[in-house]
Design a binder for these strands. Structure first.
Length: 408
DNA sequence: TCTGGGGTCCTAGGACCC
DNA sequence: TCTGGGGTCCTAGGACCC
């Protein structure tokens, strides 16, 4: 393969930066963006990070680390809006933009050099424009592939620009801890450590048969990663693979045990899943129910149906039927509903009159909700449910496409 | 470290069929 | 009938990413 030139762009403390821009009083201050209810920090500003506030901490821990931290409840729409515009800006430099999450993207600029000179220049232009228009800084990595570009963007934050040239690769990787690579998490890192592998250099030299014996098919890929090899292409949204599941889950405001209470949440979740599935024209054959107990132990059960559905009521019925097959042994902390085994169906009305009426009623309901907000029109018992659980926004949410999630 | 939510991929075992 | 092997689908759980 010809030498490629890939940029990885990572917005610095994205949610927190957007908040500080939209509210000048927050600028220069330690802030933490959180969800509602039982929640954690999704993003901390650099001022807060200086005190040790980190993503994933609960509010109590954040307060311990930084007593004067300012909590801001996240506003998903604001971030989606800003992200969409930034991603669009990137397309001025190449059509090959892969949106990895709401605040990260790869650009393949291999064929953009005639127009813009160099990858470095593109990075500078992009950084300047993002800062000027949105007041946000980003870190950019430039490298011959996605793996290394992502690694490079992590190396200097905030407002960094790091280049890994093909000649630099062996030197950079030789002493780099394996866990610094995207794709090697804590567990794999531990396994590798027990095998005597700490650095990418060691990983790349390790006999592939022994890695395969331990990790199966992943073993091969691990060795490639250790060598800094990654042939995966930058995939623009149009070429993205079809989504394979649609789901929602929520940690409840309080742990609950009553069957009736659980059902109320399941109805709400089923409606959220169904609506999103209908909006994108998918239907699922399998319904999954996730239950997390107070002690954090989590079980998942699934049921495969005869046919496909994206009707909230049917998803709900399936979820309840799974629930009824379980022994609920402790108070419940989290509930989740998901559909998989998806089919991308063209709009088709069912054959039978009563079915047809139901589908038409659902789409009328969807229309109202699209216009006036979620749960404007819904099934009676959702409205009874005063505590809606906590919707935590996450940087992993996509700014567009089927994975886009609207909350409230 | 009392610990959110949306996804993907992989593994291993069982049912079922030919 | 005491017993093979491959393919496919389903299920449960875990690792990983943001």
């Amino acid at each position: 393969m010809n030498q490629r030139l890939i940029l990885h762009v990572d917005m610095n403390a994205f949610f927190a930066s957007v908040e500080q821009q939209s509210n000048p009083e927050l600028r220069g201050k330690p802030i933490a963006v959180i969800g509602r209810g039982r929640t954690v920090v999704t993003t901390a500003s650099y001022e807060a990070r200086a005190f040790g506030v980190k993503t994933g901490m609960n509010t109590w821990q954040a307060k311990q680390a930084c007593p004067h931290v300012i909590f801001v409840i996240g506003d998903n729409r604001k971030y989606t809006h800003t992200s969409t515009q930034i991603m669009q800006m990137m397309r001025d430099y190449t059509p090959l933009v892969e949106v990895f999450s709401i605040d990260e993207a790869w650009l393949d600029v291999t064929h953009s050099l005639a127009l813009f000179g160099s990858a470095e220049r593109i990075a500078y232009l992009l950084k300047a424009r993002i800062r000027q228009r949105f007041g946000i800084t980003c870190s950019i990595g430039i490298a011959p592939n996605k793996l290394l570009a992502k690694l490079a963007s992590e190396m200097k934050k905030p407002d960094g620009l790091t280049i890994i040239r093909p000649d630099d690769v062996p030197r950079v990787l030789e002493t780099l801890p394996v866990g610094d690579l995207c794709g090697i998490g804590r567990k794999v890192e531990q396994h590798l450590f027990l095998m005597g592998i700490r650095t990418c250099g060691e990983l790349g030299r390790y006999p592939v048969e022994r890695l395969t014996r331990k990790f199966g098919i992943v073993g091969e890929r691990l060795q490639q990663m250790g060598k800094g090899v990654d042939d995966s292409p930058v995939m623009p949204v149009e070429d993205e693979e079809e989504v394979k599941s649609v789901g929602h889950s929520m940690t409840l405001e309080r742990d609950i045990s009553l069957h009736n209470d659980i059902c109320k949440y399941l109805l709400q979740l089923s409606e959220m899943v169904g609506r999103r599935a209908r909006r994108y024209g998918v239907a699922g054959k399998t319904v999954h129910l996730t239950v997390r107990y107070a002690d954090f132990s989590t079980i998942g059960r699934q049921q495969t149906r005869k046919g496909y559905t994206n009707q909230s009521e049917e998803i709900f019925r399936e979820a309840v039927s799974i629930l009824d097959s379980l022994e609920i042994s402790q108070p419940v902390r989290l509930l989740g509903v998901r559909i998989t085994n998806l089919s991308y169906q063209s709009e088709q009305l069912p054959l039978f009159e009563d079915e047809r009426r139901k589908v038409l009623a659902t789409s009328a309901m969807d229309e109202v909700n699209d216009r006036f907000g979620n749960f404007t029109v819904t099934y009676g018992s959702v409205l009874d449910n005063e505590e809606k659980g906590s919707f935590v926004i996450s940087p992993a949410w996509r700014p567009d496409g089927i994975r886009k999630v609207d909350v409230e």
